[in-house]
Design a protein around this nucleic acid. Structure first.
Length: 174
DNA sequence: ACGATGATGAAC
DNA sequence: TTCATCATCGTA
């Protein structure tokens, strides 16, 4: 049985946590049914100075979970139909998070939350068994997978500097 | 390429 | 209270 990643894992620099999440497993428990899939695509939203980050314009009702302790789930609704799953990083009151964009069986942050029934009911909760959503350890087989660094998706309004930062990390099959 | 679809936050 | 925007997706 794999190790469940705890607060300590997420209480580190956001870009480091993001890249480190590749190859780890997203685990979802609903009732007595457990699904476990490898994470293959993430993005880092590194703090209030990051103009693509929801916390760039201060604290608001929506982004309040980002100010909570590392390992807190931040789910928000966008484009009138999609839920986005993030996990909060770094120390309390430092608003940063990693967006989980894709797993081995499903690509796209909106599809992922739909498939694993992730919505605002999880917002602000801590990852763990009680919540029914957590992350388990795993290691990448480097003979099979390579890590790609690219700009983040769908953040054009953040301005050229932050749009071009390579804060999206993707696991690709060689 | 574009419309769906509605919460969010900033401006007025 | 209005309005543009939005960390997207399915269909064309």
């Amino acid at each position: 049985m794999s190790r469940m990643l705890n607060k300590k894992f997420f209480d580190r620099k956001t870009a480091v946590v993001a890249e480190d999440l590749l190859g780890k497993f997203l685990v979802r428990k609903i009732g007595n049914k457990i699904t476990k899939v490898m994470i293959t695509e993430v993005e880092a939203y590194v703090g209030p100075h990051d103009l693509a980050c929801h916390s760039a314009r201060g604290r608001t009702p929506r982004n309040t979970p980002m100010f909570c302790e590392a390992g807190t789930i931040y789910v928000y609704f966008t484009y009138g139909m999609h839920w986005m799953l993030n996990i909060v990083t770094e120390e309390r009151d430092y608003p940063a998070a990693v967006l989980i964009r894709g797993t081995e069986s499903i690509t796209g942050p909106g599809r992922l939350t739909k498939k694993y029934k992730i919505d605002n009911k999880l917002n602000g909760k801590m990852i763990g068994k009680k919540t029914g959503l957590w992350i388990e350890d795993g290691s990448i087989d480097r003979k099979v997978w390579r890590v790609m660094h690219t700009p983040r998706i769908g953040i054009d309004s953040a301005g050229p500097v932050w749009v071009n930062k390579k804060l999206r990390f993707v696991l690709e099959e060689k």
